[in-house]
Design a protein around this nucleic acid. Sequence first.
DNA 1: TTCCGACAGTGGGGTCGCAAT
DNA 2: ATTGCGACCCCACTATCGGAA
Length: 512
Amino acid sequence: MLLTRLAHVSQEIAATSARSRKITLLAELFRDAEADDVPIVIPYLAGRLPQGRLGIGWKVLSHQVEPAAEPTLTVREVDARLTALGKLSGPGSQAERTRLVGELMSAATEHEQRFLFGLITGEVRQGALDAVAMEGLAQATEAPPADVRRAVMLAGSLQQVAQALLTDGPQSLARFRLTVGRPVLPMLAHTASSVSEAVDKLGACAVEEKLDGIRVQVHRDGDSVRLYTRTLDDITDRLPEVTAAALELRGDRFILDGEVISFDSEGRPRSFQETAGRVGSRTDVAKAAKEIPVSPVFFDVLSVDGRDLLDLPFSERHAELARLVPEPMRVRRALVSGSEDLPRAEGFLTETLGRGHEGVVVKALDAPYSAGRRGASWLKVKPVHTLDLVVLAAEWGHGRRTGKLSNLHLGARTADGGFAMLGKTFKGMTDAMLTWQTERLQQLAVRSDDWVVTVRPELVVEIAYDGLQRSTRYPAGVTLRFARVVRYREDKRPEEADTVETLLAAHPEVRP
DNA sequence: TTCCGACAGTGGGGTCGCAAT
DNA sequence: ATTGCGACCCCACTATCGGAA
């Protein structure tokens, strides 16, 4: 199949807002794909490369190349070139990569270049990714969408399921069963603003501590243990102590879901930055493990001794978990019968925060494990802080925010009467706010280029955030975690904004 | 008819590893 | 030795579509 066909379909998908129409367009294309094209066409139209990331980003792609006049590239040829390019390493590889990208781009028409650019940077912006492609695949093969979805979650990959479906038909879906050693997309949580809101929604529930570490899925089959992240990357080699812990459990075959986190000598959780740095270390694992040892803490079990537990209610899965995993390696929890039991839930949150953890996750006791979904039966609750900060500058947005000032630079007052930038945010604004701030900030502009508009520091904005973290980038030595706009405070003057001093005082555990 | 679940989009900061400088 | 880039951890929030209630 020619690449130009994909580029055109992608453009057509982007041009329609109706999801049903996007699905139909995808289905038509998938039906026409030859067997050998399937493993390429499906991920491409889901906005991803089959080989994952290539080590090519916006920088390399921004070198403009004269486009070809006629579309001649086939998807298989593109795939072969990208595969070769992704394998490069060592001295000179960056230059060679850039050269090969240029060669590929010069064989592509302007239209194809745009499609390839989006594909390689992971920003196709066609309003359809995995979930919509999955629906298109179901329509193309006349398989029940729910069955396709389940197979994809269990395979951890749309591509494998697509290949099976298009070659062997809907009955091939039965092949995709929960298997020890093959990672499953993990269940995710929604956010609730308070414990009472969460308990009201869920009724009988477990309130569990939320640890600020790295999600891990542990597979053990006899002596073999594999560890996977939330996106199913294999991190077994980086965490030998987690493997050792899994081998000590009194079970032979299982899949566990939990969090990896580092505790200090007093048993307090280390900061997310420290845990994440440790989990990210690959070059000298032994040294890293000695300096910052991590522990797994589990909260769910998906499989035991060949039994698939996904569809069991959480209460029964937890009973299995308790049989397999001793207490200190399990997340702390409180059982709550419902709204009348709220004080217990709130007390548990207070205790958990006191132990230095992030918050809690409230889980319905009767819910199955919804792999790959942000199920409404898990609700996380974290304390939210707010500050009144001053807008120092704003950056022009992209995509649907083109032409709008979007990303705000936020400053807190300093002792000398100036402002120290604490970070940026683009979150929390409605379209109306974007329109308003674009107008207002341009009135306050003192300097402006293609990227950023610097303004007089006069506009006060209320910012919600999850906490402070250390920063080498910003002048105060700290930055806000997950900052988002709550509202503009036109009733406040910049002299009334919060100071760096009060911010640091509010978070004594974080030192610049 | 209204409500709500699921998706996609829009990017944030930090850290590590690797290649280039 | 330092710098820049890309990958991958963590993530909040809004708009929109379309099925559920």
